[in-house]
Design a protein around this nucleic acid. Structure first.
Lengths: 213, 213
DNA sequence: TGTACATCAGTGAACGCGCGTTCACTGATGTAC
DNA sequence: TGTACATCAGTGAACGCGCGTTCACTGATGTAC
């Protein structure tokens, strides 16, 4: 037993962390394995004793985002009571659409930074992406208020099917707002995209529209 | 005058068309100049007498989308009367979020297929991207109905500033829905993303929420 | 009208470079005695 | 406790490949005579 059993696991985590940051910044093909390994304080040769190939690492890095430690600053939500349901969902939305998140390219949610890369990628990456999407849909789906646009006469409560679709729309608005804000080279338009997405995503979620957002 | 003056312009357009299609499918870095030129029926050497470099072509290809001929199938809207204002905006939204558009990767709107690439790209690409965004915001912005979420007591009409922000949110929802639909490897989730985005984007635009979408 | 010619759009071989991946090796480590 | 050793995490040179870009050349074209 030349090394403690946790040793290799820790190195692997370090590689995943470096990969997550670098992929977020420049995507799958623009980042070399050399750079990822250097980011983890290693050299290129060791890579293949941790991962089969670059594509595999990519999918794992997307999933790694969900449990990365320490969490990026924009993710840290300060609560006195443990956050649950509505409180958690509102805090997540606010930090998701915050300026901090828009500027924290490396620590960003991979749904924003890697969206079109994943669309062109393999099944493993897409599966990982869907898992992150499900997580976010789950958070918002459980916290939905009344649907302002419910068809008159229909059940106005949040039934599962309609609620899931509305949560999808809320997530699409959050992610879309951030994706556009990042792709635009004009700070004012970017800020407007974020705040408009926030205002209407919160309204769509049924959390009241009179917030000063 | 060895060649007719239109000759070179036509070749240039053919290269831009090939580039638009290929970039949409696989992004800036995954496509080689060889492939783009082959797609235009040419060989690599001629490229640099039309464009300074690959990055320049990239920005021009994004803009080229706006005036490409023939327009992709999903863009063709059949009207008996010439489309204007509300009618145009509703048709654009419907075709933008259609299955045809989701599946037409090559003929897609570059805001969907190239979003994260542009976010990492140069200023020329970002400027081109913003121009396409403005076009779409303009179409929706001019056709907005009443804001269901307007703060009570405020002017319920569509003033310029509030209207522009709402139009930004509508576009963010449309683009976000399509971006997520493309990145997910599950036809049902993808279809739900599109239809949910369509339903709530139309509602947000103030076009009535009781549509059977 | 027919022919020689100047032009320049397009060709394709070549260059330098960096990448993903492989592999024989090194050396830090925990263990057995 | 101290030392020799087996293990294997990590190293770095090497390989083959394809890319962006350059450049000397070719050959199709419209024009001048």
């Amino acid at each position: 037993m030349p090394y403690a059993p946790e040793h290799k696991a820790e190195t692997r985590t370090r590689i995943l962390d470096s990969a997550r940051r670098l992929f977020n910044r420049r995507g799958l093909t623009e980042i070399s394995i050399d750079e990822i390994m250097a980011g983890a304080g290693l050299t290129r040769g060791g890579f293949y004793s941790h991962f089969n190939n670059k594509e595999d690492l990519y999918a794992e890095a997307i999933l790694h985002f969900a449990h990365c430690q320490p969490a990026p600053a924009w993710q840290r939500v300060d609560f006195t009571a443990p956050p649950e349901g509505l409180q958690l969902a509102r805090a997540v939305m606010a930090s998701y659409l915050s300026r901090d998140h828009a500027e924290d390219i490396e620590g960003s949610c991979p749904m924003i930074g890697l969206a079109t890369d994943v669309a062109r990628g393999g099944t493993a990456a897409k599966a990982a992406y869907r898992q992150v999407l499900s997580m976010m849909v789950g958070i918002f789906g459980e916290a939905l208020g009344p649907d302002a646009f419910a068809t008159p006469g229909s059940n106005r409560g949040v039934d599962d099917e309609a609620g899931r679709k509305r949560a999808l729309a809320v997530v699409a608005l959050c992610v879309g707002g951030m994706v556009l804000a990042r792709a635009v080279d004009d700070a004012e338009t970017a800020a407007n995209l974020r705040t408009a997405a926030h205002r209407y995503a919160a309204a769509l979620a049924g959390w009241g529209a009179t917030d000063a957002i």
